[in-house]
Design a binder for these strands. Structure first.
Length: 127
RNA sequence: CGAACAAGCUGGCUUAUCGCUCCGAUUUAGUUCGAAGAGGAAAGUACGGGCAACAUAGCGUACCACACUUCUUAAUUGGAAGAUUGUUGACGGUAACGUCAGGGAUAGAAAGUGCCACAGAAAAAAUACCGCCAUACCCUAGGUAUGGUAAGGGUGAAAUGGUAAGGUAAGAGCUUACCGCUUUGAUGGUGACAUCAAAGGCACGGCAUACCUUGUGGGUUGAAAGGUCAAAUAGGUUUUGUGUUUGAGGGUAACGCGCUCGAGCAAAAUUGGGUAGACCGCUAGAUUUCGAUAUUGAUAUCGAAACCAGAUAAAUGAUAAGCCCUGAUCUUGUAUCAGGAACAGAACCCGGCUUACAAGCUUGUUUUUAAU
RNA sequence: GCGCCGGUAGCUAAAUGGAUUAGCCGGAGCCUUCUAAGCUCUAUUAUGCAGGUUCGAUUCCUGCCAGGCGCA
């Protein structure tokens, strides 16, 4: 399958989750996995790519600079590790990463936790 | 030389790999190439202006903001230069006071209303607690009554012009000189105001950052404004079909069948509204840089050059190496280790004000030590 | 983006410009076999910060700080 779908580190706009209705759908009907510092929301959907939402709540992180920094770290680690989610390309999801800590964690820590989360998502898929 | 404070400026750089957003090409439907991509405060803002929509005869009232002078700006609140007057600090001086610097205040308290606790006789109306003086009486320590007085004491944050001399029974702007105050005039200044002269015997407590009065300004709402396109769903209209579920018509002696119209149901077309969504608004402008001229200055004018973010669950990033910088360690070497930071992230656009800020640089002030 | 509101003891609230109050909480005592409740007495600590007006600010004015609420 790596021939048909080569490892790509791109993260175009198509793979971002936008639109009021879709997001409401995700939050109302999606399943969730919690792993510090993330709350992962996901819902199976009839599309050809995964679409991802990254959220850092204003109540947890006050300053806009820190919020931007965390969002960029999450986005970067997803971009470099999203091939895990494409291993079994029969179902696709809308996924939301919601950051829950009140402090900004380092890049390596975020990446480690995010890889674990993506593997768990694969386990859900195979069930 | 070091330290502290204040003001201003700068606010890491280069290369490689992997990516993000917009624009322009290329091609073909997602690649390839090129170019660009956060700030001095993008933050806060009871401050303005542009722009947009709506409203709008004129006047008044209410509400809100502002209030020395001149200049300046698109701007009533900002800025510059000045005037007057307190306050704080430094220096000089015995002191009064003067000089310098910083920040503040400045329409009206002789239009009205209100407030001024406690203390004090009395707190804005004029009066008299201790006093001072005169007269009368008691009869001489002194007290009582009447009158004069506001100099002194005491209270207070504040006590009815101040100082000196004359004057007086004692006193008092009662009189005089100087100072202060008010009014008038002259001179200087664009002006706030300053200086000088004359007159007035002094009628003036503080608080408008209490209500208020006077003057000036303000229509309301904000890009989530506003405009264009427009799924789905439900609805309106038209057409077609269905049909015994229902109503009406005509027809019949009456009922039924059949016919016509309508309701209902189904399908198609069309229509207004404008939700999800998409696009415009959306970045070339009171723009930026440099130079010249005018001005004490804020600023203005002229000339030349430049194009410099436009995202929308919201791009501007990550990793590695080097330079540079900072800190720590001792082997004092351009050594090893750690780190790249402070405040902080555009959301229609400008201007102002306020606040935050590691490190470095410049200027000024103060100060310690050392040398001369 | 726009418009509002308050900041007072550990907590909840009050206070015309005139020495900051009350309740709960804490401590001690009484009562009780003991505890709770009740009664009595009592301590501690407070006006968010910085300026200004005033003789004197919790109060009036200005600027900040950290919060809360509403509209869409």
């Amino acid at each position: 399958m790596s021939e048909s779908r080569p490892k790509s580190f791109k993260f175009p706009k198509v793979e971002k989750l936008t639109g009021k209705k879709k997001i409401e759908e995700l939050f109302q009907n999606g399943s969730s996995i919690f792993l510090h510092p993330f709350l992962l929301k996901f819902i199976a959907v009839d599309e050809t790519v995964h679409r991802v939402l990254i959220a850092v709540p204003k109540k947890k992180i006050k300053r806009a600079v820190d919020r931007n920094l965390i969002k960029r770290r999450i986005r970067e680690s997803y971009r470099l590790n999203k091939h895990i989610a494409y291993d079994q390309p029969e179902t696709f999801y809308h996924v939301g990463f919601i950051y829950q800590d009140t402090k900004a964690l380092s890049y390596t820590e975020i990446e480690k936790k995010l890889v674990i989360l993506l593997k768990r998502l694969q386990d859900e898929k195979s069930k």
